[in-house]
Every structure is written in C-alpha cells, then in structure tokens.
Simulated assay, not measured.
Amino acid sequence: MTLVELHPMVAGECLNLAALTERGGRWKVRAYPAGFALLRHPQAGYALFDTGYSQGVLSAMRRWPGVLYGLVTPVRLQPGQTAREQLAALGMAAGDLKTVIVSHLHADHVGALRDFPAARFVLDPEAYPPLRHLRGLRAARRAYLPELLPDDFETRCEALRFSPAPAGLHPFTEAADVFSDGSTYAVRVPGHAPGMTALIVKTGAAADTPAGGLTGDGSGLTLLASDAAWSVRALRQNMGVHPLARFAFWDVRQEARSRKALHTWLQSHPLTRVIVSHDLPETGLPEARLPEPEHDS
C-alpha cells in the first residue's frame, strides 16, 4: 500500500461577510485562510494541491480590473507566507517542485503558479477552456486573473485522466488516479468554478484495513475539498451559502450537485479527515509519517 504524507498550509487570507459564506452567519467581516497543501509521495516526490496567494496577486489587484477583485474580496498576505517562501523554509527550492495539482483556476488557488518554473500543472481538462478567452471585467467577475498564469501555462498543463471510479467512491461515477497507484483520487466537483476537482488521499495506515479506506468508514483518508464549501461543518452538513453568494458561482445547479455528492460520500465515510480551502483543517485524525521520497521528480 502507498501512503501520501499531507501537510495543510496557508498562503494569505481573504475577507468576506460571514452571512454570505454560510446561512445563518452574522453580517460581520471575517478572515478566511487561503489554504493549499503539500503532498509527499514516496515515489513521485513532492506536489502541491493549489498555491494560495502570492505577491503577484497583490500586484494584479493594484491594476484594472484586478482592483475590482480586491474590492470584492480583500486580500491580506504576510511576509514569509507565500507557498514558495514556506517551501524554502523546509529546504526546498522553487525549481525542486515538479507538480502542482490545480483544483480550479480562481486567483486564490493559482496565485503562485509563476513561482514554480519547473512544475507541470495537473488539472481537469474542463477547467481551462471556459475561461481561456476571458479578459478584463468578464474574467475578474469569475475570480480569474489571467496574468497570474505563466506565459507557458498551456504547454505545461497535463490533463487528469478520468475513468470509472473504483468501489468506495459512490456517488462519484468517475475518478482520476493521480499517481497511478490508488493512493490519490481526483473527483469532479464543478459548479463553484468550471472543472473543479477534489482529492481523496490515503494518508493513514487504516486506509488499507477492511474497516477503513475507500470501502470502509474512511479511516486513513483525507478529503481535500477545495471550495466545495466555506467550512468543514457546512460540507459535512450540506449547508449552502447565502443566495446572494450564488451569483459568484459558475453554475449554481452544478455547485449544489457537487456539494451534495461530497456530503453523501462523507456520510458513508464519516472518519475521513476533511480539509476545505477556507477553513481550518479537521484535527485529531492520524496521518502517515513517511521516509524521504526515493526521488523528487
């Protein structure tokens, strides 16, 4: 069995009204982390799931139409908080990172792609085409700032290959085996953005027991749910956002179906650890501690 070591991280935060992010919330401004994750696979090496914000995002928000994005979603980023700086603190150079798994193309998830010149970008093939030609206000309205993408973004993209899902991923009918070894599956959860994906990762030894894993109660699994919900509680309880917030969704009906699918899967895998991008990760569930990868390519 292959296990993946997973480290949740945060690169900046955005401000929003709590009442918009969760029904019943207060009409009060709250700070929400811009989460991403570092994955360490024993053979494939290191990979990021998204990147959070970067100085490039702050620069884009000082120019039109990025300034509009910044007015709607104010961003705060402290020194040393970028993904590149945090990896450097762990002894990794930017060129050492070979893979970024991109959940979707919103600015808070791809803000630091330019900081990793040697990385390939792995994503759903349906994520980029609907946004590719958007510019100006049309792009900013979709939380998409095309200048954040590297100039050679298209040549460095690698499409996730979806096929019939293995047992234990119902109600998802298809999934992509990210590392081709059953350790990490991507499932499609579009709606918040086109082609959005979530990851289901084997991070603990219990994932290989009859009671845990994909066909059991979820023990040993971690769900990286991206923006399927603003909070872990909202995802576990299938709680939607305020109706006003739906105007930001790419497809409202798709978003509801995707959130319900993840909620349904979690009901049958209740011991899965859940991490959403804008909330603190669940704690108290054990994760694997692996030796150094054989290689980081």
Rank of each mutant, 00 (worst) to 15 (best):
H41R: 08
M196N: 10
A175S: 14
P270V: 07
L148K: 05
K260S: 13
T51A: 07
Y53R: 08
A165F: 06
R156V: 07
L58W: 03
C14P: 02
V72S: 11
R62N: 13
C157A: 11
A229T: 09
R246D: 05
L214Q: 02
S297N: 13
T203Q: 04
G213P: 03
T283S: 14
P166D: 10
E13Q: 14
L113R: 00
A248S: 13
A89L: 12
C157M: 15
A94I: 10
Q254C: 02
L58E: 08
S59R: 15
H104W: 08
R30H: 14
G45I: 09
F249Q: 10
A118S: 15
A186N: 08
D251C: 09
A225W: 06
I200M: 05
L20P: 01
L271Q: 15
S268K: 12
V252G: 00
D50E: 14
V122I: 15
F247P: 03
Q267H: 14
R135S: 14
L134R: 14
T184F: 04
L134N: 08
A88S: 11
Q86I: 03
A167I: 08
R62H: 13
Q55H: 14
G95A: 09
L271F: 11
L223W: 03
Q55P: 04
P150E: 11
E158Y: 08
L290E: 11
V274L: 07
L137R: 14
G195K: 00
A112L: 06
T82G: 06
G66R: 00
V4A: 04
L123E: 00
L20G: 00
G136I: 09
T51W: 01
R253V: 12
G191M: 01
P210M: 07
L48R: 00
F249M: 13
A140Q: 08
